[in-house]
Design a protein around this nucleic acid. Sequence first.
DNA 1: GCAAAAGTGTTCGTAGTACACCCATGA
DNA 2: TCATGGGTGTACTACGAACACTTTTGC
Lengths: 259, 259
Amino acid sequence: MTAVGPRAREGGARGPRGTAPQGYDPHAFEPFAVTVDLAVFTVREGVLHALLIRRGQEPYAGAWALPGGFVLPRESTELAARRELAEETGLPDDLVAGLHLEQLRTYSEPDRDPRMRVVSVAYTALVPDLPEPHGGGDAAHAEWVALGGCGQLAFDHAEILADARERIGAKLEYTCLATSFCPPEFTLGELQQVYETVWGTVLDRPNFRRKVLATPGFVEQVAGASRLTGGRGKPAALHRAGPATALHPPLLRPEGRQT
Amino acid sequence: MTAVGPRAREGGARGPRGTAPQGYDPHAFEPFAVTVDLAVFTVREGVLHALLIRRGQEPYAGAWALPGGFVLPRESTELAARRELAEETGLPDDLVAGLHLEQLRTYSEPDRDPRMRVVSVAYTALVPDLPEPHGGGDAAHAEWVALGGCGQLAFDHAEILADARERIGAKLEYTCLATSFCPPEFTLGELQQVYETVWGTVLDRPNFRRKVLATPGFVEQVAGASRLTGGRGKPAALHRAGPATALHPPLLRPEGRQT
DNA sequence: GCAAAAGTGTTCGTAGTACACCCATGA
DNA sequence: TCATGGGTGTACTACGAACACTTTTGC
């Protein structure tokens, strides 16, 4: 081991919080920047969209990038992710506060940002279609962009986005997360469309219906309410997300899985 | 947003790699340290063990801690994890090089290390029982400690270890990772013991056997070879890990799953 | 009436579970 | 020959896949 720092070659120093060990100067070496990146998804008209920001400066000027930013000195990465999401996207505060934010993984290739060493912790979130983002006070303008229609993404954000999509797909199998894509009241058809959109497959409606209703606490029917979906057809009963979070037995997608 | 840095409030600077954006001084603020922590498991005599290091200095002097250390300026976290593993544990180089290292998640609570701000990326690995670790050149001494017999762990390492164990358990269900716990040649009974040890359950031998053999590429029988396992009983056929990595249909543990 | 979407019922095959049973070895 | 662990066979059950069919709405 050659690193100099708290747990490597400890100098034996202790002391009040924030005091570095003896022989260790926090400012002596090229520092790491720690950032968060956000892969936020929604389903719009049967197509998966991601929340992206158009870059104004080099590098990657003009390209789409994931929202994100620096972690503050007294912030956890999750808190930073929530703050950035509120600031950069203009999503309603209550929505952001109640959001399920999932840590995806950390990206740390030394040259992932050509300007300096940046280690980035990626988070994923799912939101219903409703809110139309408008840039935060910082003139950042986030937009929903259909996956596949975003050209080359900045930095390694294409990799992050792909990893996030894969994770979301896997999570739908064994959690109740799909309801996060839906408005407070939704039809089973809409819920099914979430699965079909994320997985890119077609599901059998009767079987899907049974699976969902057979899982206690997944959805709860809203008494008496119904809504027309496609303009035509029988009005569908409305449902709310239930208290359950896990889904067993899982709702497996038709094809295989991966590591 | 208040952070000053590359993607926050970009000053429009560009330039050769490593040059910070205009108006941004990498040394101007209290830096983040970026470290890796390793949760390395093995199965010994039917008990799950973790590779731990006894701390010599405060804080947490005398407590067990996960192996780990600082990420170097030109290193990815995965590379750092592999290097630390080799250095601190004395495991054979070829074993470390071929090891499956899985990124668990990143721990970033501001006060997780009382000395300074440390963001740590945790990795998990599985190794067979064979190698007996002996401290690296750095006088660090890693030991296999049975889970449950390690008292209070330093920092938030108990949380990391618990998360790692849970992840391992889940991974066994739908990947071929269990063979990583086994020596190059192993019996199906030994493989089953891996599952039973990690999951803490008992499995039906005939059914386990069929599941494993029915998955193409999971294990390959070593022609003609056999070995006595418990001193008594019929010698068991030997197997090698096959080329497959995923396991579908999955090998589900008896009880439920979680988010 | 027709198209479209919701909702119900039924059949069939596969895969997991729970066993009973035989085989090979050491003490 | 008994205990121990490896290996095979089989019946039962449950759940998912596939598909036919009814219901309610707009045009």
